[in-house]
Design a protein around this nucleic acid. Structure first.
Length: 644
RNA sequence: GCCGUUGUAGCUCAGUGGUAGAGCACUUCCUUGGUAAGGAAGAGGUCGUGAGUUCAAUUCUCAUCAACGGCUCCA
């Protein structure tokens, strides 16, 4: 007998060799049907597998994240089974579960799968799922596994086998499909009741662009049709807050073929957003001791050779213009220009930290396939600044930058993000990263200390650093789930050396400053794209391009409406009047759809009393108040940059 | 850059081998209406661009550009 401990602390005895599934069945048949996998001593495994010693056991059902990914991984096998049935001879690479669903990568040879085929494959999957084939786990020796795939002529699975050692190799079989797989899987195919193949894409083998491109099919599956319907509905909802859609509807920005890809044109409403963000940034930075500078949009090749950017990033800079035998590049970053400003006059330790900020535009030749609305563009307004400081000052300076992020995040109510400490990969020193092993280690330790000392939750990621030093990135997700870096705070121990920057220290010796590159608001483009999705277009009053719209009941009151508009404008409030010959219901509807925060309805009653009937977007009628009172309240809401 | 899909009016989309349609938006007129769509009329598109096939191309073929979904990249 063995002792099995349950999550509630209860311990029960079972016969040695019993499976988690059988234990579930002993509790209730209903539970057994719902069990998808088992967590044994914290390790997820097949619910079928025999338990041969004491263990703590958790039966995993659909509501457990681990069970979901097991379910999706099994769905990927089902996908492969369906494809093998319809396209015999297809070679499979890997088919993991992802955050929302699963995919399988395959080599179709000369054949092609079209989007129409996806519907057929879906059907086939449903058919196969109904057969309720169990997922059988087969332990196999490496030699046998190699023989099996050699006979099949499957170079992909043979490649996978190379990385595995004997004794840990398993196959899984369901129906007619056998795959090299470490598992775990759900007990059988029947629970997979609702399937949607969502997209057909290409993906480089092993994620390397020099390799062959495989065909990838993405899909998602659920235990019930309703859950699939709900998921598809949620996707529709997410699309409604896509910044590209809202950006168009709210007149924020536009793109034009004649201007060029990735080069947004900021419309008047979008320009107000930029100006408000810059106003916030300038106030914040002035208070934090930054000075503002302005630098040209181009510079000579020699500067980018000095900075070391050219060897790393030439491909993602616009090609140079030749003038008088010199090559000039459009700037892709402000740093080198700022270093030259630091270097313009001799510096004493008394002038450090030297903090300079700029809101200039930079130009990056992003790969055409990477462009994405406002989130990834070729012309970007950086919320950029550089801090030159001593080693002793570094900790406080870096910490202050982090605190500045958090202050901004509070203002905008941003709470869904991940702080990512990006480190170098020692194997790539001298290639992707400057070859200063000691400095890397020192600065990485300093940055980590800032995060730990400030109790900031973070994740560490290898091989994501900038070429000149480690950094902290703030990762966010777009409405459709794509990940982006919103803000960044980077250490640079290298540019100071490259540009021969120095200051005179207390002992009257020259010393190289450390440099912090920071952009708490990232780029205006990405930040505004993010904010559009974050607020679903319903900006807080201080940011809203149009803050108040005055709606006369009929044009008899147009004159009064315009007086109210003037009073608002005089108080610095962005206001306009709806002077169309429409009914009030129509005017309200249109204004609601434009997500203008306040509507002031004025008619006979309001005009005679010098009032306005206030209506808040999304909230409805708030009642009448004197014009002056509304102006005062609205002004207060704007000044405090209140988020609703 | 690579794989796949798409490209018709300002927007969302229908449609056809014989040079085009709807709804919303827009303009004008009627209506002067009290908290999410009042009515009528009108204007608006060389069907992304270039070439080929054809008596004839927006429709078929090819190329190209752009957008979209991924992959790769992101100072």
């Amino acid at each position: 007998m063995i002792n099995i401990k349950f999550p509630d602390g209860a311990i029960r005895q079972y016969e040695k060799g019993i499976s988690a599934l059988a234990i579930a069945r002993s509790i209730s048949e209903g539970l057994a049907k719902k069990v998808l996998a088992a967590s044994v001593n914290g390790v997820v495994q097949d619910a079928h597998r025999p338990l041969d010693k004491d263990a703590s056991l958790q039966l995993l059902t659909w509501n457990d994240a681990d069970a979901k990914s097991t379910f999706w991984h099994s769905s990927a096998h089902l996908l492969a089974e369906a494809i093998e049935a319809q396209f015999p001879g297809v070679k499979f690479w890997v088919g993991p579960a992802v955050e929302q669903g699963f995919y399988y990568d395959m080599d179709l040879g000369d054949r092609k799968i079209t989007e129409e085929d996806l519907a057929l494959i879906e059907k086939k999957m449903a058919e196969l799922a109904k057969k309720d084939s169990s997922f059988e786990r087969i332990e196999i020796s490496k030699q046998e596994a190699i023989r099996y795939f050699s006979e099949k002529g499957d170079e992909y699975k043979l490649d996978l086998l190379q990385g595995l050692t004997d004794g840990e190799i398993t196959f899984y079989k369901q129906g007619a499909f056998i795959d090299l797989c470490r598992g775990p899987h759900i007990p059988s195919t029947a629970p997979i009741k609702a399937i949607k193949l969502t997209s057909l894409a290409g993906a480089y083998w092993k994620g390397n662009e020099k390799n062959k491109m495989l065909t990838r099919i993405y899909g998602i599956s659920f235990p019930t049709q309703k859950e699939l319907d709900d998921y598809l509905l949620m996707l529709e909802e997410a699309k409604k807050r896509d910044h590209r859609k809202l950006g168009k509807e709210l007149g924020i920005y536009t793109m034009d073929d004649d201007v060029g890809p990735g080069l947004p044109l900021w419309l008047p409403n979008g320009t107000i957003l930029i100006e408000e963000l810059e106003r916030l940034a300038k106030e914040t930075e002035t208070a934090a001791g930054y000075k503002r500078v302005v630098t040209p949009h181009i510079a000579k090749e020699s500067m980018y050779l000095t900075s070391g950017h050219l060897p790393y990033y030439a491909d993602s800079m616009f090609p140079p213009m030749e003038m008088d035998g010199e090559k000039y590049y459009l700037k892709a970053m402000n740093c080198p220009h700022h270093h030259k400003i630091f270097d313009a006059e001799p510096k004493s330790y008394r002038e450090l930290p030297f903090r300079i900020a700029e809101y200039g535009t930079c130009y990056r030749y992003e790969q055409s396939g990477e462009l994405f609305g406002l989130m990834r563009v070729r012309c970007l307004h950086m919320n950029d600044a550089h801090i030159y400081c001593s080693k002793e000052q570094f900790f406080e300076e870096f910490k202050a930058v982090n605190e500045m992020y958090l202050k901004y995040f509070t203002i905008f109510g941003i709470d869904k993000y991940v702080m990512r400490l990006s480190l170098h990969d020692p194997a790539k020193l001298g290639q992707k990263y400057v070859n200063e092993p000691v400095l890397w280690q020192e600065t990485e330790a300093m940055v980590r200390k800032v995060l730990i000392d400030t109790n900031t939750p973070f994740v560490e990621v290898q091989d994501e650093a900038a070429f000149y030093g480690p950094k902290i990135d703030v990762q966010i997700w777009s409405a459709i789930g794509r990940e982006f870096t919103l803000a960044t705070n980077q250490v640079d121990f290298n540019s100071g050396i490259k540009f021969k920057l120095s200051y005179t220290n207390k002992e009257n010796h020259p010393e190289t400053p450390l440099i912090i590159h920071r952009a708490p608001l990232g780029t205006h483009e990405r930040f505004i794209g993010f904010l559009l999705e974050h607020y679903a277009g319903k900006f807080p009053l201080w940011l809203a391009p149009v803050q108040v719209r005055v709606l006369p009941i009929s044009d008899k009151f147009l004159g009064y409406a315009q007086q109210v508009e003037q009073a608002l404008k005089k108080a610095g409030i962005r206001a306009e009047t709806d002077d169309r010959g429409e009914k009030i219901g129509k005017k309200i509807r249109d204004t609601e759809l434009l997500k203008i925060p306040y509507m002031l309805v004025v008619g006979e009653k309001e005009m005679s009393e010098g009032k306005v009937a206030v209506r808040r977007q999304g909230k409805g009628d708030l009642g009448a108040q004197p014009v002056g009172e509304f102006v005062a309240l609205a002004s207060q809401e704007i000044i405090s940059r209140k988020s609703e």
